[in-house]
Design a protein around this nucleic acid. Structure first.
Lengths: 218, 218
DNA sequence: AATATAGTGTGTATTTTTTACACTATTAAA
DNA sequence: TTTAATAGTGTAAAAAATACACACTATATT
């Protein structure tokens, strides 16, 4: 007797200075018409991570996204039709890459939509609990995590980076101290490029130096 | 169709200045005669945590132990008889409480034994991988974790506490700096009691002030 | 009684990190 | 040319982390 279980994805992005999560409106019972995390059953011979990639692809059109396992949820009562275990994953995507691609590709959901983490609708199953745990975890790991850089464009301004930190920590940070610290960490590459299309002083763009970042984490 | 899955427990203790894990010798196929983490199938109407408690109780005689979910493992090939998902938990116990209680209470294992984390035997399934991940996680969280205090007796010496830190970090620490820091954190209660039965100067005993610890973590 | 043993317990100076805080510079649009 | 909006910058003070060595004490041994 083999294991039969689902995966659910908490797909984050950063847009308009806010952290947002992709939710889908279910078109199937149970919880038909409710908002839920994208998720589905894992096939018999399918690796969990591949299932997560499949689901994220269906929902964002993106392959090769940043993934991390969050936890397993298996409450006896979590699913109204009997105990179904789910393994929740966190995925981080760049908004620029997905903004035009989000649409329901499958028959079992009506639509997909980005919701700011502070303004979520009522959610199916125990999905709110899953999301809350995922925020907690991102927060805790922030200081040694790639997360901010997976959420931002490849080239970003220091203000954007600070906004990601602020959104995750839920508090505002001092601009000068934030910049000083980021520069001292030494894994930001200052580019000779600047923002375009803004009606005020254009900010300098930065890139993450992944090699230096990795060295520091070890 | 409901979920059918197992839980596996990485049960840690601290003894003889070493971190140790409880392993059981399997008395059933597959992997009969191999060492493995204590684990078993979760009953149909049983909460995961209750299954973990049941298994820890069978193996250590202890109830109410410190538990934390580690991760789900579901590799298609992890179990030779077909994909079985397992949810791994970390449990922390005090050696003084279990030292005489560890014995195989069930028919499916021959014996149970504490192994230092640096000298593990060959292990069944993907259990080595599970253990490695658990050590990583304990290490990362050390600075804001109750783990050291769950592994030590209620009343402990600063040297013992330092040994737990050193075992988890895999490096030695300076005694004076360690003590200064622990005292400054402010959640250790200095007792008017001292070690007994040692043939050298008896060390002062300390207790964790859980209330102050909690305040600091928030 | 003297000595060996083994671990306890303590202070200071230096460096590094963190914090608090306010103004000038640049650009586009009105 | 003025206004509105955001970018970008330095210093002083406090707190935390680090490096480092020796005297103390309880017991066991002779």
């Amino acid at each position: 007797m083999l294991s039969h279980f689902t995966v659910d994805c908490v797909i984050y992005t950063f847009h308009e200075a806010q952290l947002k999560i992709l939710l889908t409106e279910r078109n199937e019972y149970p919880y038909k018409g409710w908002w839920a995390l994208p998720g589905f059953f894992v096939e018999k011979d399918e690796e969990m991570e591949d299932a997560v990639k499949r689901i994220s692809y269906e929902n964002t059109g993106l392959k090769d996204i940043y993934l991390e396992q969050l936890a397993a949820f298996a409450g006896v009562k979590r699913h109204p039709e009997g105990r179904i275990l789910t393994v929740a994953y966190v995925a981080l995507v760049r908004y620029e890459n997905v903004k035009n691609k989000v649409k329901p590709v499958t028959s079992y959901m009506k639509q997909a939509k980005w919701y700011p983490i502070n303004h979520l609708p009522d959610l199916a199953f125990d999905h709110r609990e899953i999301i809350e745990l995922s925020v907690e975890k991102l927060k805790k790991r922030l200081s040694y995590s790639l997360a901010p850089f997976e959420l931002l464009p490849e080239k970003f301004t220091l203000t954007q980076l600070q906004q990601v930190y602020e959104a995750l920590l839920g508090e505002t940070l001092d601009k000068r101290n934030f910049r000083k610290k980021m520069n001292n960490l030494g894994y930001l590459k200052e580019l000779d490029e600047f923002q375009t299309g803004v009606s005020y002083r254009a900010a300098r763009l930065y890139k993450l130096d992944r090699r230096k970042f990795q060295k520091l984490v070890d």
